[in-house]
Amino acid sequence: MNPPVPGLEPAFDVAVRLGPLEDHGMTRAGHRRIVPIAGGRVTGGVDAEILPGGADWQLVRADGAIEIDGRYSARTADGDLLFLHATGVRSGRPEVLEALLRGDAVPPEEYYFRTTLRIETSSARLAHLEHAVFVASCVRSADTVAYRAYRVT
Rank of each mutant, 00 (worst) to 15 (best):
T121K: 08
L100Q: 08
G44A: 04
Y72H: 11
E49H: 12
A77K: 13
E9P: 00
S91E: 13
R28E: 14
V60H: 00
Y147W: 12
I119K: 01
T115Y: 05
F12I: 04
G54W: 01
S123N: 02
D143H: 13
A149Q: 06
L100F: 07
V35Y: 01
P36W: 09
D78K: 14
H131L: 12
A124Y: 08
V5Y: 12
F83A: 12
G54L: 01
T153N: 12
L8R: 01
R151I: 08
I66T: 15
A38F: 05
T43C: 04
A127V: 11
T27A: 12
G79I: 05
I37K: 00
P36M: 11
E110L: 15
G44S: 04
V135N: 08
E130F: 05
V139S: 11
P4W: 10
Y72P: 02
T115E: 07
I68C: 03
A99Y: 00
P94Q: 06
V106H: 09
V60P: 00
D80H: 10
D80W: 02
A77T: 12
I66V: 15
T43W: 03
L59S: 07
I34E: 10
A65N: 12
T43L: 06
T76G: 11
F12G: 02
R93L: 15
E120M: 08
L126N: 09
V145G: 01
C138D: 13
S141P: 04
G39E: 07
A86K: 01
Y72T: 07
R102W: 10
R33F: 09
V135I: 14
Y150R: 00
T153L: 14
L129H: 07
G7A: 07
A15E: 10
P52V: 13
P3K: 12
T144A: 11
A146W: 01
R90N: 03
A149C: 11
P52I: 14
S91R: 14
A132P: 00
T76S: 12
G40R: 06
L21Q: 11
R102C: 15
R75T: 11
E67I: 07
V14W: 00
R33N: 10
V35F: 00
D69L: 10
L81E: 13
R102A: 15
L101N: 11
A99R: 03
R33D: 09
V152W: 07
E109K: 14
D47G: 10
A11V: 08
R118S: 09
D69P: 04
V16R: 01
Y150T: 01
R75P: 03
E95K: 07
A55W: 07
G45N: 06
A74W: 00
G103F: 03
P107M: 03
Y111A: 15
E67C: 04
T87R: 09
G7S: 11
L51C: 13
P6C: 01
V46E: 04
Y112H: 04
P108K: 02
G30H: 04
L51M: 15
A62V: 10
L8P: 00
A149E: 07
